[in-house]
Design a protein around this nucleic acid. Structure first.
Length: 153
DNA sequence: GCCAACGTTGGC
DNA sequence: GCCAACGTTGGC
């Protein structure tokens, strides 16, 4: 059992959008970064992830999702008309992968990035999200960090 | 293999 | 909209 953090822009796809999906489940497609891809391939069924709202007025953790399908080829990479199309990825030799996530619950309130930053020196020392210049859209969270962040709720 | 140019991310 | 900090690309 591992914990993760997955970023999404609420203007594009936020936690309210996930809540409206059939079975509150969506495929996490469009990831085009090797390290983020590798993290997704490490995910197991039942792993949980924070649903993080990025690039918005109040960046922060909005909810919890569960991995309900492990990594499989991301078909948007094969679609010439898709903005994430990558001619280097083919069905025979896929380069990009995605997982399915299911909403577990919204947090009672958004735990903001600025709050997390306030804890960066102590309780959240080493949190990948807070490391300088980190732009990965999929990140690991330790069990200790996970529990501590939830205690802020 | 080096590295400049370019594109992207994402907080502010 | 700005811009720092990346990652990627491609000429050499």
């Amino acid at each position: 059992m591992h914990y993760w953090l997955m970023k999404s822009e609420p203007d594009v796809f936020g936690i309210d959008d996930l809540a409206k999906m059939t079975r509150r489940t969506t495929g996490w497609d469009g990831v085009r970064n090797y390290q983020a891809r590798n993290y997704m391939r490490e995910m197991a069924r039942g792993d949980q992830a924070f649903f993080y709202h990025s690039n918005c007025a109040e960046p922060g953790i909005a909810g919890i999702v569960e991995i309900t399908r492990t990594a499989y080829p991301d078909p948007t990479a094969f679609d010439r008309k898709d903005p994430h199309y990558d001619p280097g990825s083919t069905p025979e030799k896929p380069r990009w992968f995605m997982v399915d996530v299911t909403l577990v619950r919204r947090l009672r309130r958004v735990i903001t990035l600025s709050e997390l930053k306030n804890k960066a020196e102590k309780e959240l020392d080493g949190l990948a999200l807070l490391r300088r210049g980190n732009r990965l859209s999929v990140l690991p969270v330790s069990t200790r960090q996970w529990r501590y962040i939830l205690s802020l709720e």
